[in-house]
Design a protein around this nucleic acid. Structure first.
Length: 786
RNA sequence: UCGGGGAUCGUCUAACGGUAGGACAGCAGUUUUUGGUACUGCCUAUCAAGGUUCGAAUCCUUGUCCCCGAACCA
């Protein structure tokens, strides 16, 4: 399925292009967590991306701890992170610490100072904030901005030597206090922190900031593609600045930063801060609580690494903020478990069933019951072999699920009710003859008769209807267990939205315990961590921490998909589980943001500043262009000059059309000013196109060529045989061929799928080598098909 | 208010300017000793309006909405 087609995302596109262009000969990525918390499913996306790319391109991927802030980091986290990465199935090329680069970073900082690109600033943190200005207003230079190199160097060395208190001074880059990008307003490079570092101990009392450290770490490791999340887009300019001014990459190409959208999931929170709050507030039992979206939590919950990897593969990578449906994760988990988990029988909330005629069972055997259903092929890593079997005891008293009996069954109820008959999974059918109640009127037992002739899947001989199949265990031989049922932690799909404290969105029912569950005998020896399907209930794992043979503890991994009949579904909802009533959550931020200055306004301003542009605007209109076109052609000098040059030889409207509509596409990412296409060449091209000397398709192809090599388009057209129209007969012949080659498409087109016209036109044009005029082809095609 | 990003089925994600595709969810059916699995079918999308083009999700213009940015956090 999705496996067969290798996933391709925009990042891999970039890498392909870099490799093709020879910018890199190898691919090196890294996963750079800060060891200040446990990894979560969002990190898993990043891990799969970075390690996955390395694997795809035969490259390398380091696990690098971004440990530049000693006050927040801890070895507990360092250990958990590597454990989680490896558990997910990835082997880092190297495990590294940015703290190990502190000496190198320090040297480069001194160099920055010597080059006049950094200075020591004595402002307090509030003052720095004040001087920085706001989003709308430029900042002011620090009074310490113009200290001499020597003074800066001396102070910086003294900072390092521990002569100053925390916060007394910082090292800042000298960039631009008026930059529209706040990150460029003389950002901090180093701060003083007399703190013990988990790795360097007390060797340092100044620590580099992320924006300074990260690009250097990447450069030192020779990272080619530095992949991070969207919120770092604003940091990219500074990332590049640091690399440029430290020249940390030497002769090697500098790493480049690319951003993708981080993962958000329904019904959960993902920030480390909030997860920490859940842990510290004892809302959950720890970082590895099975309800947590942490890797550790999911592992404890029973999700396999393969399922999590499949999920990351399924959701893809893009730059659009999005929230993934939790159902997709559950789908991956079930899909994996279906092929790896053996089936067994277990009853969560038992209701006793006394058989009224147990003697008929004498000699009846439930031996050799398979652990996997016939229609499932277990995966290679399933924990029991495909042909594994066990014996199921069936004594005089059974236990069935309380939910599987109803005195007043709804329509379509495929379970037990007074007078009704059901099949015991793998066993015979039973009929409910009598309901036994306690003094309070509560149903405490059932008395049922068993039909021995229904073994082996046979129907009752008396013709009674079988109302479904239910699971059961034998009371005498079954084992007791505690089973925990986990549900999502939050009632609201977006617990962080609406300006409410996310803790108020916690549901009280995220953990329910079945204390008196009973499992079939064979489960008594299930090892901790093993995953099973309890038939009709879901997938369960023997808890990795608390489970013992003497006191079994199981967790529900995920429920089975439940495609009950409509009536049953209404019920499932009524019991409040499937859908939590839409919480009254108003979107507090349904506000309208004031609009930015538009490109149009920029162009208008440029004309006010520059009389030459104003004149160009005037002239364009005199040549008969609309005000809108004239506007577009007079916003900057390069464009204006190009238009003037081209319009000198060809019709102004044609010139405008090509420059406005066709040129941008041909330029792609490039700037017009950088490419500086030749006016006469462009004019020549437009002339050929307008005279129908070449087809429109050919013209666009030539435009692209013209930008790459500044040569006469007429000559280029000649070389490529693009000049001259195809004669009528040749065109007809091509059309005939294409129609004959795609009879199915022709039929669909006749059937109303008009989009196929484009396909056929494209085929003909392609067959002509770009020589045929698409307009003519289109006309011909509609004639032939009418 | 300024700068940087983004917008395709309910959800996630594809589509050298040439058949808007896939997956999840939903619905219907077939198979079934799990209301499971598998299989089949159906439903549903290019933010809006203009423009360029034989042809626009894709290029141009204008507008709308969403996200990020003013830690000595990362």
């Amino acid at each position: 399925m999705s496996r067969s087609e290798p996933r391709h995302d925009f990042l891999r596109d970039i890498i392909d292009a870099d490799l093709r262009a020879g910018r890199h000969q190898r691919v090196a990525t890294r996963f750079p967590p800060e060891p200040n918390g446990y990894l979560h499913i969002g990190h898993a996306k990043s891990i799969c991306l970075n390690f996955g790319i390395a694997a795809d391109y035969n490259g390398t991927c380091n696990l690098r701890y971004d440990d530049t802030n000693p006050t927040k980091e801890d070895v507990e986290y360092v250990e958990s992170i590597e454990r989680d990465v490896r558990w997910l199935g990835f082997a880092p090329t190297a495990v590294l610490f940015s703290a190990d680069y502190f000496p190198r970073m320090y040297d480069l900082a001194e160099k920055l100072i010597q080059d006049g690109h950094a200075y020591v600033c004595d402002l307090s943190d509030e003052q720095i904030r004040e001087y920085r200005g706001t989003l709308a207003e430029p900042g002011r230079p620090s009074p310490w901005r113009d200290r001499t190199c020597a003074e800066n160097l001396e102070l910086f060395r003294r900072m390092r030597a521990g002569e100053f208190a925390d916060g007394a001074r910082v090292l800042r880059a000298k960039i631009d206090m008026a930059s529209a990008n706040m990150k460029m307003r003389d950002p901090l490079l180093y701060r003083i922190r007399h703190a013990h570092h988990h790795r360097t101990g007390d060797a340092w009392c100044i620590y580099p900031m992320y924006d300074y450290a990260h690009p250097l770490e990447d450069a030192i490791e020779g990272i080619t593609h530095s992949i991070c999340t969207l919120e770092f887009e604003n940091n990219r300019e500074l990332y590049d600045w640091v690399l440029e001014h430290t020249r940390a990459s030497g002769d090697a190409p500098s790493p480049r930063q690319y951003e993708f959208a981080r993962l958000a999931l329904d019904y959960t929170v993902m920030s480390k801060r909030k997860l920490l709050q859940l842990v510290q507030g004892n809302y959950v039992a720890g970082w590895d609580d099975p309800r947590m979206p942490t890797i550790a939590g999911m592992r404890r919950r029973g999700y396999s690494a393969a399922a999590i990897r499949a999920f990351c593969d399924l959701i893809g990578v893009s730059k659009a903020n999005s929230t993934v449906d939790l159902g997709k994760l559950e789908y991956c988990v079930r899909d994996d478990l279906n092929r790896t988990a053996p089936r067994a029988l277990a009853v969560l909330t038992p209701l006793a069933v006394d058989l009224t005629n147990p003697e008929v069972l004498v000699g009846v055997s439930l031996s050799s019951v398979p652990f996997y259903p016939a229609d499932v092929t277990p995966a290679d890593d399933a924990h029991l072999p495909a042909d594994a079997r066990r014996e199921l005891a069936l004594g005089a008293t059974l236990l069935i699920e309380r939910d599987d009996f109803r005195e007043d069954p709804p329509e379509d109820y495929q379970r037990l009710a007074p007078g009704r008959t059901v099949r015991l999974r793998y066993g015979p059918c039973i009929t409910c003859d009598e309901v036994v109640r306690d003094d309070a009127g509560e149903v405490v037992r059932l008395r049922c008769s068993v039909h021995p002739e229904t073994m082996g899947g046979k129907n009752p001989t008396d013709g009674r209807k079988v109302h479904g199949v239910i699971h059961w265990v034998d009371e005498a031989t079954s084992v007791a267990a505690v089973v925990r049922i986990y549900e999502r932690l939050f009632a609201s799909a977006k617990p962080e939205e609406g300006g409410i404290d996310f803790l108020t969105q916690l549901t009280p029912r995220s953990l329910e315990v079945a204390p008196r569950a009973r499992l079939e005998r064979s489960l008594a020896t299930a090892p901790a961590g093993s995953r099973w399907q309890f038939e009709r209930l879901g997938y369960f794992v023997a808890d990795a921490v608390e489970h013992t043979a003497a006191a079994p503890v199981w967790n529900r991994i995920v429920a089975l998909r439940d495609a009950r009949a409509v009536t049953g579904k209404a019920e499932a909802k009524a019991d409040g589980r499937a859908d939590v009533a839409a919480a009254p959550q108003q979107n507090a931020k349904a506000k309208t943001r004031p609009k930015n200055r538009s490109p149009q306004e920029y162009r208008a301003e440029a004309r006010v500043r520059d009389p030459e542009l104003a004149a160009a605007y005037q002239r364009a209109q005199e040549l008969g262009l609309s005000a809108a076109d004239a506007d577009l052609l007079s916003g900057d000098r390069t464009t204006a000059a190009l238009f003037a040059e081209v319009a000198a030889t060809v019709a102004p409207r044609a010139a405008a059309k090509w420059i406005i509509n066709e040129l941008p596409r041909a330029l792609g990412e490039r700037e017009l000013a950088d490419v500086q296409p030749s006016g006469p060449h462009l004019a020549e091209l437009i002339e050929m196109a307008e005279n129908k000397e070449i087809s429109a398709t050919a013209a666009k192809e030539l435009l692209l060529l013209c930008l790459e090599q500044s040569r006469s388009p007429r000559q280029l057209a000649e070389e490529r045989g693009l000049r001259g129209a195809l004669d009528e007969a040749a065109l007809q012949e091509l059309v005939t061929q294409v129609l004959a080659a795609h009879p199915d498409k022709v039929e669909q087109l006749r059937g109303g799928k008009t989009g196929l016209m484009g396909f056929l036109v494209g085929q003909v044009v392609k067959a002509s080598g770009g020589k045929a005029s698409a307009a003519a082809v289109s006309q011909l095609l509609s004639q032939r098909l009418s």
